[in-house]
Computed example of a mutant assay.
Amino acid sequence: MGSIDEERLLLEQGRTQNESSQLYTGDGSVDINGKPVLKQNTGNWRACPFILGTECCERLAYYGIATNLVSYLTNKLHEGNVSAARNVTTWQGTCYLTPLIGAILADAYWGRYWTIAAFSTIYFIGMCTLTLSASIPALKPAECVGSACPSATLAQYAVFFFGLYLIALGTGGIKPCVSSFGADQFDDTDPKERVKKGSFFNWFYFSINIGALISSSFLVWIQDNAGWGLGFGIPALFMGAAIASFFSGTPLYRFQRPGGSPVTRMCQVLVASIHKWNLEVPIDSSLLYETQDKNSAIEGSRKIEHSDELK
């Protein structure tokens, strides 16, 4: 009788664990309060519209500035073509360097959600500053009279470029985090959700292209025909909408905990690979993990599947 009771108890425990695994995500994701999340109530496609809306509005705002920026510098700030092109390429280069800052902060300290939230706010402040610099007469040079075009003052340049580089800093926290935060909404341990993740990336790039299309056509026409104050103000409004969209989805999001500095982990890999250069690799690939537990030893990270592609 005792052995039968023990078997029954083990079966009940196994059934309970199986039901729990079906209720909760298996990839270590948590809610905004750090508690395990229920699959039924969070993540998946119910959370993605807010993330896709954020990306679409942010890309619309970015391309609404970048597409026609040379025209603004030459026609309104009265710069030469060479100087204007140099300023634009320097700014765009900065926009593609700042994601290194956002990625490290997200992975090591803040997590993707708070990184997006903080840098989106910086982005919005930059957009508002840029709009004010194009709208308030004291913050922009006077219009050309004949061939006489007054140059922008140092203060006018300072306000304009302050707003412009706040945008460059803001995009550095959004660009590397939004796509991966969207991917976090799908549980890798669930085969059904893993398939849906691929569909998410299709919609993600579709959202980028929709934002770029609207800004490169409609907003450029607004800037050239209705004024730059309105032409910069509309992207600022869309950036505000992006922030509102992002925060409104907070109860539905799944969060991955930050796992420490990726630079430190890269250095650890290099040191370990040199130290174990002549180590004989076991035939059983399950022995190659850093831990036998289900999850990685690094908080916020996942155990990577083995591959023979880099032999």
Rank of each mutant, 00 (worst) to 15 (best):
S180C: 06
S180W: 02
Y157G: 11
F161D: 09
V178Q: 02
G172V: 08
F160Y: 12
G182A: 08
Q185F: 04
F161N: 13
Y165D: 03
I174M: 13
F161L: 07
G163E: 07
P176F: 00
V159E: 01
L166V: 11
G172M: 10
T171N: 14
F160P: 03
D184P: 10
K175H: 06
I174S: 08
S180V: 15
F160C: 03
G170A: 06
A158F: 12
F181I: 05
F161Q: 11
L164E: 10
Y165N: 14
I167W: 01
G170C: 12
F186C: 06
L166Q: 08
S179T: 14
Q185R: 05
A158P: 12
L166M: 15
K175C: 08
D187F: 03
V178S: 10
G173N: 07
D184G: 10
Y157M: 13
C177I: 11
I167L: 14
G163W: 02
C177P: 05
I174A: 00
Y165M: 03
S180M: 13
V178A: 10
G173R: 05
V178R: 00
Q156T: 09
Q185C: 10
G163T: 06
Y165H: 13
Q156E: 09
L166F: 07
K175W: 03
V159A: 06
F160W: 08
G172L: 07
D187A: 10
D187R: 12
F162W: 10
L166H: 04
G170L: 11
F186T: 09
I167E: 06
Y157T: 00
V178H: 00
F186V: 09
G173A: 07
T171G: 12
G173I: 03
F162I: 10
I167N: 11
V159H: 02
S179N: 13
Q156N: 07
D184S: 12
G172H: 02
I174L: 15
G173T: 04
L166E: 03
I167D: 00
F161T: 13
G182R: 06
F162A: 14
A158H: 08
A158T: 15
P176M: 04
A183G: 15
G163C: 11
